[in-house]
């Protein structure tokens, strides 16, 4: 690192740090959905990345639709696309839970295989519908450009937007899980399914909506993802392992843990990436995680739920 001056290093840290924040936002949005599904229900959803891709493709579809039929609405379509991504992915998640997952709650390892099968089918569907090439939506003008606080620091606007979106979604999830009566029922079901059923909570319905919510948030992650990179049929599968690491490292049932671990993983990776090659940065980050998890299997914030 000798060849950089201190002010240069500071700028590098700020810019890589901000690149890390974009990665953090997408990882956190993905992981929030997964943490709800895995942490609250114990289901391993290997198709989670594909639900993210559903969101990304929905955004792309909306962008092409607006561009060809209602070009005047271009500045606003993105907000609607986010909402629609949530609804489409959530609806698909609802259907998947109804058709597939609910039969497998007693066999967690089998949900892993079944959802992997689902992910293969979804990937091929993307390929058949949208083609094998990577696509990206036309972003509205207000997401382009960057903010320059000093000469050497250059922060892209889309990253800031994604960060804001992530903050809103995270607060929303917190509100839903910890302040609403629905969240109370979800947490009750997690802690003791049989007792919750006995006091009149419809646990099956809770499961279905929890799964749908998790998938819907993955859809939002997909919409956010389109502002950062282009989407292909296998995009989702590239992020699924990282996302699982975020959830496991954070401690499965802890939302604070998920945020902290998404932040540290994304920052570690993007700052390392500047100094060594991208692939080695990933190797070191994942290796460090595996080693930490071997010594501390319950993750950063252990869940207090008895299982």
């Amino acid at each position: 690192m000798g060849e950089y001056t201190y002010s240069e290093l500071g700028s590098i840290l700020a810019m890589q740090g901000f690149a890390g924040i974009s990665l953090f936002s997408v990882l956190l949005l993905m992981a929030l959905g997964l943490a709800i599904i895995f942490g609250q229900m114990g289901v391993i959803n290997m198709a989670h990345g594909e639900f993210m891709a559903v969101g990304a493709y929905t955004t792309y579809f909306m962008s092409s639709l607006t561009e060809s039929y209602l070009p005047t609405l271009m500045p606003y379509y993105f907000l609607i696309a986010i909402l629609l991504s949530f609804l489409v992915a959530g609806l698909l998640g609802y259907l998947a839970e109804f058709a597939l997952i609910r039969h497998l709650y007693k066999r967690p390892l089998d949900t892993l295989l079944a959802t992997w099968g689902l992910s293969l089918i979804m990937q091929q569907s993307f390929r058949s519908i949208f083609g094998a090439r990577e696509v990206s939506p036309t972003l509205p003008d207000w997401l382009m450009g960057s903010y320059q606080p000093t000469e050497t620091i250059d922060i892209p606007l889309n990253g800031m937007f994604v960060l804001a979106l992530t903050a809103v979604v995270t607060l929303g999830v917190f509100y839903l899980l910890f302040k609403s009566s629905w969240g109370l029922r979800v947490r009750a079901t997690t802690q003791n399914r049989i007792m919750s059923g006995a006091v009149g909570i419809n646990t099956k319905k809770i499961d279905r909506y929890t799964f749908a919510l998790g998938c819907g948030i993955a859809g939002i992650a997909g919409a956010a993802f389109t502002t950062i990179a282009s989407t292909g049929p296998t995009t989702g599968s590239l992020y699924i392992v990282d996302t699982f690491m975020v959830v496991v490292f954070g401690g499965a049932a802890s939302l604070f843990g998920t945020i902290a671990s998404a932040f540290s993983i994304a920052q570690a990776q993007s700052i390392l990436e500047f100094f060594i090659s991208g692939s080695m940065a990933k190797v070191y980050t994942l290796l460090a995680l595996v080693i930490i998890l071997m010594f501390k299997p319950e993750g950063l914030f252990a869940s207090k739920v008895r299982r």
């Binding site: 597939l100 497998l104 089998d110 295989l113 079944a114 099968g117 689902l118 992910s119 293969l120 089918i121």
Partner: peptide, 8 residues
Amino acid sequence: GGLFISVV
């Protein structure tokens, strides 16, 4: 994918 799901 169908095989995965049906076998499970």
